[in-house]
C-alpha cells in the first residue's frame, strides 16, 4: 500500500491504482458501496445510480468516478442510503419481484442489496406490469418480470459472446429488455447456456433450465454472507487471472 495514492471514503483512506474508479478501488480494498449495474468484468455504465456518492460537492455515480488523490467521498450517509433505498424500492414496484417463487432467490443481487439497505417493504404502489415469459429456448428461460435494466446481458452478449442477443427498447417507464430476433423469441437467436450473458444476469431474468434448485435456498451466495461482506469478490481481477478464464 505504501507509495500508492489514496482518496478518502467516509474518512477512511483508500489506495488506488492509476485509472481506477472510486468503486473499483473501494471494492479492491474491501469497502462495499451498494451497486447493481456495475460488474467487475465490464466497463462501468453508471445507469442504476445505486452507487451514487457525494464527492467534490456533487452527487455522482462512484462506478464511473475516476479516483483522484485526496478526493473526499461520502457514501454511507443517511441521505445517500435513503436515496438508494428509494431506488431499490422503485425497481421492486416497477417489475414483478415475487421472491418466494423465484429460483434466483438467495443469489439475486437486487434482493441482496435490498437486504443490505434494510428494505422491509416497497412502500410504494405496485405497478404489477404484464410481462409474458419466453420459454421458447430448450436450455434457457427468460422471465422479463424481474428485469432491472442493468444492461449487463446486453453488454456481455455484445462484447464477450459477440452475439448481440439482447437490447433495451423504449424510453422511461416503457423501457424494456428485448431479444434480437425477428420473432422476438430467444430460440431464434444464437445464445447458448454457456454464454457470459447468461452468467452475468444479477437477477432472475435469464435462467438455465433444470438446475434452478441444485443449491437449496438457505445455502446460496447471499444466504451465506451479506453482499457487503463480499465486496472483494466484486473487485476487478488482476489481468493475468482474467486471461486464464
Amino acid at each position: 500500500m505504501s507509495g500508492r495514492e489514496s482518496f478518502l471514503l467516509d474518512g477512511t483512506p483508500v489506495p488506488f491504482a492509476p485509472g481506477e474508479t472510486v468503486m473499483q478501488a473501494a471494492l479492491a480494498a474491501g469497502h462495499y458501496i451498494p451497486h447493481l449495474c456495475y460488474h467487475r468484468d465490464f466497463k462501468p455504465h453508471g445507469s442504476c445510480k445505486v452507487c451514487t456518492v457525494r464527492a467534490g460537492g456533487q452527487t455522482v455515480a462512484s462506478c464511473t468516478l475516476p479516483a483522484q488523490p485526496g478526493l473526499e467521498v461520502e457514501s454511507a450517509t443517511p441521505e445517500l442510503e435513503d436515496n438508494r433505498r428509494t431506488l431499490v424500492q422503485m425497481l421492486f414496484v416497477e417489475g414483478n419481484h415475487f421472491c418466494p417463487s423465484c429460483e434466483k432467490s438467495g443469489n439475486c443481487l437486487l434482493q441482496a442489496v435490498a437486504y443490505e439497505l434494510g428494505v422491509l417493504s416497497a412502500d410504494l404502489d405496485h405497478l404489477f406490469p404484464s410481462r409474458p415469459i419466453d420459454a421458447s429456448h430448450p436450455d434457457l428461460l427468460l422471465d422479463f418480470n424481474r428485469c432491472i435494466l442493468c444492461e449487463l446481458c446486453v453488454r456481455a452478449s455484445a462484447e464477450v459472446d459477440g452475439k448481440g442477443v439482447f437490447a433495451l427498447s423504449g424510453r422511461g417507464i416503457g423501457k424494456h429488455l428485448i431479444v434480437n430476433a425477428e420473432s422476438g423469441r430467444l430460440v431464434d437467436t444464437a445464445i447458448a447456456a454457456t454464454d457470459k450473458a447468461v452468467d452475468v444476469c444479477p437477477v432472475g431474468v435469464i435462467l438455465r433450465k433444470r438446475v434452478g434448485f441444485a443449491v437449496p435456498i438457505g445455502r446460496r451466495r447471499f444466504d451465506v454472507a451479506p453482499v457487503s461482506a463480499q465486496a472483494k469478490g466484486d473487485a476487478p481481477r488482476p489481468p493475468r487471472e482474467k486471461e486464464r478464464r
Binding site: 415475487f98 417493504s121 405496485h126
Partner: peptide, 18 residues
Amino acid sequence: VAVGACAINGGLPAQRNH
C-alpha cells in the same frame, strides 16, 4: 403490522394481477 410477503407485496395471490 404487515406480516409476510402477501401483506407486503400481494404475494402469490397477486400473481393473478396481470
